[in-house]
Design a protein around this nucleic acid. Structure first.
Lengths: 192, 192
DNA sequence: AGTATTTCTTAACTAAAGTCAAGGAGTTAT
DNA sequence: ATAACTCCTTGACTTTAGTTAAGAAATACT
């Protein structure tokens, strides 16, 4: 299970046994039950997450309605905006499935980063890469219709469509659950 | 004019006269005419931009149609995705107005960063901050209607609505120019 | 100044998303 | 096992966006 984390790190930097042990000694691994809320709107948490197993999501509550905007699965890292801004969170984070996560806070990261400056490099590379991906992603979203977005998701993350409730997927696609339902029916009709 | 760049840098790190001179000696400043294309689809450019004056935009050409997805104005920095991926660009970048920019490439940045490690820290802070902003931005986009997005833009970046052609704004809002035109008429009617 | 081009608006029509409501299927809890 | 929820679908209706086309207004060109 820990190897998933080290595989991730190895994508950016080489890592020695010493460094691995330093990370393990921080005791970051947590098992979390489906439905657990990791972060609530209004909280000023300093925790970051890395998903080893399972799925977590970001959602807002707007006019009493849940609006899911993002999913994180195996090998995804999530540093909530409130950790960066040092502000109250605008959104919730909860577990879509039973999860195994690492939970780290800013202090731990600083400790590791001063001990092993390599990790700073990793963080920079990682956030630059993520920023580029995120931008392309946003652009794709803007330039396509809900139907195209759904078909696109079917290509790129077919697992998500299986493991996540449709009404959460709908939010992720920027539409209402009823629209997603109809859109799917429409696609099935076209195929036949 | 250079002070705009140094003000930006000062948001993240303290900067000495020595460091300022090192940057100035790179001769990064460029005047660019409206309409100039800075990056074309398919190119593997390694250039990053910082806007001192003017406005540049990202756009795609899809089915022969321009689709604008992002604008960058004074104090905005832009490192195209293709610089990070080392891949062919999926989009174009061009000047919406006459601009004064800094144009830097990856080699220059590495040179400065090894000479002054502080700049590495700045880059990390900056991309983390941008990533958090971008995420919130994307979430807002997903959870609101075209009309809400337009009204939101009117609040947050009223300048853009003045300085940018409507059909480019439409793409930015994820709709067609005709829809933006009607949407605006609708809003005016409501007010009266 | 006058022409060409780009940009914006309007209209009529089509297609798709939002809304509201009802009901069914599946899951969870006791 | 039954009741209570949650989740998904469907239908009828409203609203808004996409499409196509035409023309007006503003800008750029020489």
């Amino acid at each position: 299970m820990q190897d998933i984390l080290f595989d991730f790190i190895s994508k950016y930097i080489s890592i020695t046994e010493d460094e691995k042990n330093a990370i393990l000694s921080l005791d970051l691994f947590r098992s979390v039950k489906k439905g657990t809320i990791l972060l609530k709107e209004g909280q000023k948490s300093l925790n970051s997450y890395f998903v080893l197993k399972g799925c977590i999501r970001i959602y807002y509550i707007i006019d009493g309605e849940e609006k899911t905007t993002a999913f994180y699965t195996e090998m995804d890292a999530l540093t909530p905006a409130c950790v960066i801004n040092k502000a109250a969170s605008e959104y919730f984070i909860s577990c879509v499935e039973d999860c195994i996560l690492t939970v780290s806070n800013v202090d731990m990261e600083e400790e590791i980063n001063t001990k092993f400056p390599k990790f700073d490099i990793m963080c920079r590379k990682f956030s630059e890469e993520l920023l580029a991906k995120q931008q392309i992603n946003f652009d794709e979203f803007k330039t396509s219709s809900p139907e195209q977005r759904y078909l696109n998701l079917l290509q790129k993350r077919p697992d998500l469509i299986q493991r996540v409730p449709q009404h959460q997927l709908a939010g992720f696609l920027g539409i209402k659950p009823e629209s997603l339902s109809r859109l799917r029916a429409r696609i099935l009709e076209k195929k036949s």
